[in-house]
Amino acid sequence: MNNAASILLLAFLAITFIQSGYDKLFYWKDNLDWLKEHFAKTQLKNLVHLALLNILVLELISGVLCVVGGIELFVSNGRTFGLYGAVFSSITLLMLLFGQRLAKDYDGARTIVIYFIPAVMTVLLLS
């Protein structure tokens, strides 16, 4: 288990993004309605549908890459997919952070930072 920390971090990111993507996919209307209200006073107010779709796709890509990366790391010590998963996760979180800051939801932005730290740690461990 030379890569235990990396595998655990990839599992954390995979669970985070697959669950979030699942939630967006199966509760699309609820998410869209909440986000339209959340971004009503921002420059994104007319782009909420497109932004939600973009985030959904990035979350699912991030989650799948982290799953594949964890398996690759466990089976062959390969780091490629895990690194891509961690980078995609970090980019996705930066996009979410940007949205929260734009909406002036500073508590929401602070929460995203909690997820960003392990994502960047994973990038560092797998680089």
Rank of each mutant, 00 (worst) to 15 (best):
Q43H: 12
L83A: 14
L94M: 07
L124D: 00
N54V: 10
G99H: 01
V64Y: 02
T80Y: 06
V120F: 04
C66M: 07
A103D: 00
I117F: 12
V64N: 02
C66I: 03
A14P: 07
P118R: 05
D23R: 10
R110V: 14
G108W: 00
L10R: 08
S6V: 04
S6C: 04
R110D: 14
A4Y: 07
S127A: 08
N54G: 12
D107W: 04
A4F: 08
V68K: 15
S62K: 08
T122K: 05
V48M: 01
Y115M: 08
S62I: 08
V68F: 04
L56V: 13
K36Y: 07
Q19T: 06
A103H: 00
A119P: 01
L52N: 02
L52W: 01
D105S: 03
N3V: 01
G82W: 14
C66R: 08
L53T: 15
E59F: 02
F17I: 06
D23K: 12
K24H: 09
V48Y: 01
L53Y: 11
Q43W: 14
K24I: 12
T92D: 05
N54F: 13
V67Y: 07
I18F: 09
I71G: 06
S62A: 12
L93P: 00
F116K: 00
T122E: 04
G82Q: 04
S62G: 05
L125A: 15
L102Q: 05
L47Q: 12
F12E: 05
N3K: 11
I55T: 14
V57M: 10
A103C: 06
G108K: 00
A109N: 09
D33P: 08
E72W: 08
G78F: 11
G70W: 02
F116G: 00
G82C: 07
V57E: 10
L9N: 08
I114W: 07
L65I: 03
N77A: 11
G108N: 01
S62W: 08
Y106M: 13
R79Y: 05
A40F: 02
T92P: 04
L126A: 11
L10Y: 01
S6L: 04
L94E: 07
I55S: 03
N46L: 14
N2V: 13
R110E: 13
A119W: 02
L83S: 12
